[in-house]
Write a protein that binds this DNA or RNA. Sequence first.
DNA 1: ACATCCCCTTAGCC
DNA 2: AGGCTAAGGGGAT
Length: 301
Amino acid sequence: MQVSRIKAPALFNLSHSLECGQVFRWRKIGEFWYRVLGTGAVKLRQVGIYLEFEGSEGIDWHGIIGHYFRFDDDLKSIVRTISRDKFVSDAISAYRGLRLLRQDPWECMLSYICATNTNIPQIERTIDNLCRKFGRRIRFDGKEFYTFPRAETLAKASISSIRECKAGYRAEFIKATAESIVEDASIFDQIRSCTYEEAREELLKFQQQKVFKGIGPKVADCVLLFSLDKLEALPIDVWILRIIVREYANLFNKEFLDKIKTRGSLTFKDYSTVSKTMRGYFGGYAGYAQEYIYNYARNLL
DNA sequence: ACATCCCCTTAGCC
DNA sequence: AGGCTAAGGGGAT
């Protein structure tokens, strides 16, 4: 094992990218960030314009890291197109260099199924329990890590054993989703090649057929944005909704605004309306705008 | 102590 | 068809 380094693009901030709530399971130990990526573990830190890293043997970390951190995104140009007002511009300045990640779709999907109707510490605990119980242990840099469980493993697991990971009623959604993925592992490649609208339909169509249980509009948007290259996807959770109502009220008519304000959450149809409006406003990189705003709002408001 | 509310939503019922 | 409500668990109040 030896230290390598990769030149990061001009606009890149490792901590902002890992701490913005889009991904789970990164561990900061000392100056380094650690995580299992695929079948191996890696540690990295940012030093000036370089990203220093060491990883498990026999893996092309150079390629994986550039791909994972979306170094192929022209962030400078993206930021320019989404800077539509002072609020988002301030958010972008506050989190300069925040990049979306290109996560593994299976892990991303399962993680966000675990993330419904709960809080972040709880989500992390459940995912960690699943990995410890159903993943493979890896030793790296004198520390223990676990791989994310394979779909085959969770498809075979009993609902009660998944429930023991503190997954609650989500246990049956996890098993059902795992079974669907085992049945058709090419589904993610198919979805990736679709347009955003087609891809979203595809994920939610499965929902109607009771295949991908636990995936509604919000989780679908998370999976599309964080793992399937649909950068116009704009996941709307309670926080984003609060910010939209507060900072972007002028984009909606009064009756609609009053309706969603009093309810505090969105119906399926209202979600689509808000989502479409915000996508129209921010454009094809609306997902990047969402991530900056989300972070800004959670930490500063 | 103890109850109650809150939390990065969705499925299922009516 | 669209709106309401329950769902698990832990921490804060």
